[in-house]
Amino acid sequence: MMDWDDMRVFLALARMESLGRAGQHLRLDPATVGRRIARLEEGLGRRLFTRSHQGYALTDEGARLLPHAVAAENTMAAAAQEAGAGSTGLSGQIRVGAPDGCANYLLPQVVAAICEENPALDVQIIALPRVFNLSRREADMAIGVSAPQTGRLSVQKICDYRLHLAAASSYLDQHPPITKAEDLRQHRIIGYIPDMIFDSELDYLAELGLDRVALGSNSVAVQFNFIRHAAGLGVVHDFALPSAPGLVRILPQVFSLKRSFYLIRHLDDRRVSRLNRFAETLYRGIRKELARLEGAVDGPLPSDAA
């Protein structure tokens, strides 16, 4: 019979696909993680992982075990929550996946406020420019920029958000003026690496017919810092603008994008009270913070170009 410690080691390796990262998460030596997995596989009489130079991947047998391990994890978390029923706060660990724009400029202050109210709660934010696989339990819940159409998922729209072209005022002072969309072709464009756009909702520049990205990154944070350091112009989330007062929106009356955030969860987790409570608090926090940040740049602003 497997015990909870076995499940913890199995889940960590399934999620992180690396002995080193799993060991760091569990505070175990990587070699110990490897021995524990080998012992678990021997006890079950089946291979749970395939090993390669890229890391550890679940076998079919491992994938079948995964939902049972997650169910055990949820049961243990619920038991811990029940044991602390004298306190109404959330506790335990919750992992949230998000695109890095949201993860860098929106989630930190929202999650910090939640944890301030729930001191026994640990929250991990995974900022990756890709879609999260909740079926493999890479995260307890994820924020996406489009609603998935397949899988056993629960999808809730959080809110809309806006994006505009922006540049550093110092960049604009040293380059030709921009009064119409055609003028953009005279400027250095910053954006996503075209073949690394993981969601069509992120193909911002297509609407302007700009097909050359002079400075590209798969990270919104890197793009934002390119723009902040006067390297060129690009599309910026309005909610990120208050963190960089030197940036100026460009042609806000001509070019404006609206996108949406969705809270995505595994359908089975709707039965887990602590995740439901956290999800509701996160939903309300994101809506409130995004309204505050966008309100700070609601315009037209005197500093907007053209």
Rank of each mutant, 00 (worst) to 15 (best):
F239K: 10
V236H: 07
V272W: 14
V272C: 07
A244V: 14
R228D: 14
L208C: 08
L210S: 07
L257K: 10
L202D: 00
D211E: 13
H229G: 05
V213K: 00
L208T: 03
L208R: 05
P242F: 04
A206Y: 10
V272G: 02
V220D: 00
G234V: 06
V272Y: 01
L247I: 13
V236A: 03
V236L: 10
A230E: 06
N225V: 05
P242M: 08
Y204P: 05
D203T: 10
F226N: 07
F226G: 10
Y262P: 02
I264W: 05
D269T: 01
K258I: 10
I250D: 01
L233C: 09
L215Y: 05
S219C: 12
L202G: 02
F239T: 15
P242Y: 01
R265W: 14
R271I: 00
I227P: 04
R228H: 15
V220H: 13
P245E: 03
K258F: 07
N218K: 10
F261L: 14
A244P: 12
Q253W: 09
V254K: 10
G209Y: 11
R228V: 04
D238T: 09
S243Y: 13
F255Q: 04
R259I: 09
S273I: 03
I264D: 03
F226E: 02
R212E: 11
L205M: 06
V236C: 11
L210A: 08
P245G: 08
L233V: 02
A206F: 06
P245N: 02
Y204R: 00
L215M: 10
K258T: 11
V248M: 15
A231H: 10
D269P: 01
K258E: 08
F261Q: 12
Y262C: 02
N225A: 06
L263N: 05
L241A: 01
G216K: 00
V235K: 09
L205K: 11
L263C: 06
R228N: 15
D238S: 12
R259M: 13
V222W: 01
N218T: 12
L251K: 12
Y204S: 01
A244L: 11
V272Q: 10
L202S: 10
L247R: 12
S217H: 01
V235P: 00
A221T: 12
V235E: 11
A244I: 15
F255E: 06
Y204H: 09
V235A: 08
A230P: 09
R228T: 15
V222P: 07
K258S: 04
A206S: 13
I227H: 02
R212M: 10
G232Y: 00
H229V: 03
R249N: 05
S273R: 15
S256T: 05
G209V: 14
Y204I: 02
D238P: 09
L263W: 04
V222I: 05
R228K: 15
V222L: 08
P242C: 03
V248W: 15
Q223K: 13
R249W: 04
F239P: 06
L205E: 03
R265K: 15
